[in-house]
């Protein structure tokens, strides 16, 4: 979700087999460098595989280039890496959020499982609760939110949406990314 000179990204913590909850400590948002974040929903095994794979790729990028990766560059890396598996895809739908390291401009985008980028100026949603999230974000989001308001908006949107989805919830991680500062908050949420 985009705010004024800041972005936020959040995920729930549930890991389940259909209706059976296995773990309530399975974060789906991963940090790559100072202000590039990747959220992954979908098949849990591919969430781990893909997040580890990008850690490898981004670390090598940083060592080689001696600078952090920019979110737009990272988005293209995600896209091309997913398309490599065009005919045997990872079952994930990623979301990228970050601030451009030079201009500080917010950047968000989403992908389908084979890497088609969906750029957005406002918000991106993904996962089993995406329909509910669309509704919540459409009604709560407004342009130019400050970091605190953005945190409130994204948290309310997420919590309200997952309450209407039996397959999501069980706590949440919320990251608010500002220039030179990243705030990570844990939301307990409903544990039932």
């Amino acid at each position: 979700m985009v705010g004024k000179d800041c972005v936020a990204i959040a995920c729930d913590l549930r890991l389940g087999l259909q209706a059976l909850t296995v773990s309530n400590n399975f974060p789906k948002v991963f940090q790559y460098g100072d202000n590039v974040f990747l959220g992954l929903t979908g098949l849990a095994t591919d969430v781990s595989t893909v997040s580890d794979l990008f850690r490898y790729k981004v670390n090598m990028y940083r060592l080689r280039e001696e600078r952090a990766i920019a979110p737009s560059t990272f988005a293209n890396l995600v896209s091309s890496s997913l398309y490599e598996r065009r005919f045997g895809p990872y079952f994930v739908s990623p979301v990228v959020a970050g601030l451009d390291p030079k201009t500080g401009a917010p950047f968000i985008c989403g992908f389908d499982s084979i890497g088609c980028i969906d750029f957005a100026k406002d918000f991106i949603v993904s996962g089993t609760a995406s329909e509910q999230l669309f509704g919540m974000c459409e009604s709560l989001w407004e342009p130019n939110l400050g970091p605190e308001d953005l945190f409130e908006t994204i948290s309310q949107a997420l919590l309200s949406a997952v309450d209407r989805d039996a397959l999501s919830g069980w706590g949440a991680h919320v990251y608010v990314i500002e220039k030179n500062k990243v705030t990570k908050r844990l939301l307990k949420g409903r544990q039932d």
């Binding site: 296995v22 399975f26 095994t45 781990s48």
Partner: peptide, 8 residues
């Protein structure tokens, strides 16, 4: 068997 790993 799907290789989903979780610390529990």
């Amino acid at each position: 068997y799907l290789a989903a790993l979780a610390p529990v």
